[in-house]
Amino acid sequence: MPFRIGLTRDFLTDDGRIGWGDIGLAALDAADGVEWDFIEAVDGDIPPEAVRGYDALIVLTPRVTADTLKGADRLVLVARFGVGYDNVDVEACTRHGVLVTITPDGVRGPVAVSALTMLLAAAHRLGEKDRLVRAGRWHDKLDYMGTGVTGRTLGLVGWGNIGRELSRLCAPLGMRQLAADPYADPERAAAAGVTLVELDTLLAEADFVMVTCALTPETHHLIDAGRLAGMKPTAYLVNVARGPIVDQAALTEVLTQGRIAGAALDVFEVEPPDPADPLLALDNVLLSPHAVAWTDELALGNGRGAIQAALDVAAGRTPAYPVNPAALDHPRLSSKALR
């Protein structure tokens, strides 16, 4: 019996093309004993009937819920195309013996570069300057001086896969680097020139606050009204992680009142945001539709990582980067004797 892999259909454009370009599908075509196709899931919850008969799923944005797994007797792997897995009920997967994997190697460089891009664009007020030119206000540019980064303080909220790469990229810029992460290795941070501090200290001292932590119950609204009030009035907030880590209503209020200099957001509490959301009308915020890191490099890296996870399981190997290794003890997976 072939090992069947299903990809969620949101990888496709309306005319049937892979919207991401090359995501490494040639490796699936070349694999022996493997069949693959697209399942009928574009957004929302993946229905159980869509996954019956599949051994592995490669998932972009649709949600894998406990109901998705009902009757999925063959399913042993959900491979996320990316590192966020808030659209996957990991506990339900573990109970059902379904391993969940992510692709940190694919996102590390592209997301860190995009985070730095947003930081620099906000610091140089690039969005506002773009609008000046388009509006014929060339000579108003003296009113839109930016903020240099040399000698300024970068505060990283989360110093994991992305945060560490961002530290490396920013090292030549001559910035003082702080990080707030209870799980970070102090020796590794010190070797990278990063000082680990409490979050409130970071917010009080940073000129640029960069959110790079994972969304968990503990980090939901981690940056709330009280913590936003602790930021410098000249500081910028950049979020390339997940929208609900920041209280968006509170952020909108401090931006409206000019209590921080500005923000750059690739993510929102609700995606897509309501077109009437007052945040969208502000001049001191730079916005991207959760796609600032979307490049050919990211697409191929994530695709290769997710596909390799599926091929590993098909070949009886334990894949890299499982987020629920406890699932390996489930009879469904232990019977496969992954090595």
Rank of each mutant, 00 (worst) to 15 (best):
V107R: 07
L222W: 01
T234G: 11
L251V: 03
D32H: 12
L215W: 09
M1Y: 11
R152V: 11
T216S: 07
V254E: 03
A179N: 05
A235P: 02
L286Y: 10
G226E: 12
Y85P: 13
R227C: 02
V113H: 14
D296P: 10
A326L: 14
P244T: 05
M145F: 12
D329K: 11
V197N: 10
P331A: 15
Q257W: 10
G136D: 03
V240K: 00
R74V: 07
L196M: 09
A327F: 11
E128F: 10
A92L: 05
K336T: 12
L57C: 10
V34C: 07
V197A: 08
L228V: 09
V42Q: 12
F268L: 07
D14M: 13
G160R: 01
R80T: 07
D14N: 14
D283C: 09
R52N: 06
Y183F: 14
D185F: 00
A192L: 14
R74N: 11
A171P: 00
V292A: 14
T65G: 06
L196V: 05
A299I: 08
L142P: 00
A229P: 04
A314F: 05
T195C: 10
P172E: 04
H330S: 12
Q248P: 04
T252P: 06
R134G: 07
A26Q: 13
E40P: 09
T65D: 02
V254S: 06
D143E: 14
F81A: 09
R131N: 04
G174V: 10
Y144I: 13
H139Y: 12
I223T: 04
S334K: 15
D73Q: 11
A310L: 13
V107W: 00
G262W: 01
E198W: 09
A314E: 12
T13W: 11
W138M: 11
Q248A: 09
P233K: 11
V113N: 15
A184N: 09
K141S: 15
F81L: 05
A214M: 08
S114E: 08
T117W: 04
A261G: 04
S114R: 02
E49P: 09
P233N: 13
T256Y: 05
L60W: 10
A235W: 05
D29V: 12
C170S: 15
A310D: 10
V211K: 01
E40Y: 06
L202Y: 05
L202P: 00
D32G: 15
P244F: 00
T94L: 00
I39G: 03
A121S: 12
C170M: 15
